[in-house]
């Protein structure tokens, strides 16, 4: 465990662009808080705290991706969105990123807006949209739920990694002298494998929760099944 910096550091993206994404992040979090309050009740609040703590823990577990001397770690947006909903889920990831930046010196404080935009907002949004889509077409079985979690998490990671590429294109501090598409290719290549790891962790975790407490899985609770029989969803959602 030497250098464990995992997120965008200070100075990688120039000041004005970093500040602009700080504003984007603040705006996004304000929306998430406003919408998330509708979901937060006496039961979801401590559960969301647990989801944040769990994401913090698993983000420490860098796994090798085997194709190169490169590791990956959970981002957690899709996992959080499935368990506590997209709005509160994005807030969970943000809490993790803020604690990491302010206490663990991981991810620059001036880069917090960039990191929140990528992992909490873009990653969670892309992942949850995939969840909504896939739960509509896949059967409501353990397999269906696992496939949904896996694919959605993978897509979420790829989307988040492209967030960095866009930010670097807008305000990269170092002139690489080549086109941004090379960076995009590198990021997509590694994050495809990281996404597989993210997908596996997300699927295993969601299944574990769905088997013990299906009523605690937001996506099963709130998203209607293919058949409009509403009351069947929580009772027979996971078999």
């Amino acid at each position: 465990m030497q250098n464990l910096a995992m997120h965008i550091a200070n100075g990688i993206i120039d000041g004005p662009v970093a500040a602009a994404f700080g504003a984007v992040a603040l705006f996004g979090l304000a929306i998430c808080l406003a919408r998330g309050r509708g979901d937060l009740d006496d039961r979801l609040a401590p559960l969301a705290g647990l989801v944040a703590a769990f994401i913090f823990a698993v983000q420490m577990l860098n796994f090798p991706i085997f194709t190169a001397a490169v590791s990956g770690h959970l981002l957690g947006g899709t996992l959080a969105a499935i368990l506590v909903g997209p709005w509160v889920g994005a807030l969970c990831v943000s809490v993790v990123l803020i604690v990491q930046a302010l206490v663990f010196a991981d991810g620059g404080v001036t880069a917090l807006g960039l990191n929140i935009t990528n992992m909490a907002l873009i990653g969670t949004a892309a992942g949850y949209l995939m969840v909504v889509l896939l739960l509509r077409v896949l059967p409501r079985t353990n397999t269906g739920l696992a496939v949904t979690a896996f694919v959605a998490a993978l897509v979420g990671v790829l989307a988040a990694s492209m967030g960095f590429v866009a930010e670097f294109a807008l305000g990269g501090a170092v002139d690489l002298g080549n086109s941004i598409s090379i960076l995009a290719g590198t990021m997509a290549g590694t994050h495809l494998f990281i996404g597989i790891g993210e997908g596996l962790i997300t699927a295993v975790t969601v299944l574990a929760v769905a088997r013990t407490r299906p009523d605690l899985v937001y996506a099963l609770r709130k998203l209607p099944a293919k058949t409009p029989a509403k009351l069947v969803v929580p009772a027979g959602g996971v078999t």
Partner: peptide, 9 residues
């Protein structure tokens, strides 16, 4: 955990 740099790094 792996000590290799992560995807971003």
């Amino acid at each position: 955990a792996s000590a290799d740099p992560d995807g971003l790094d």
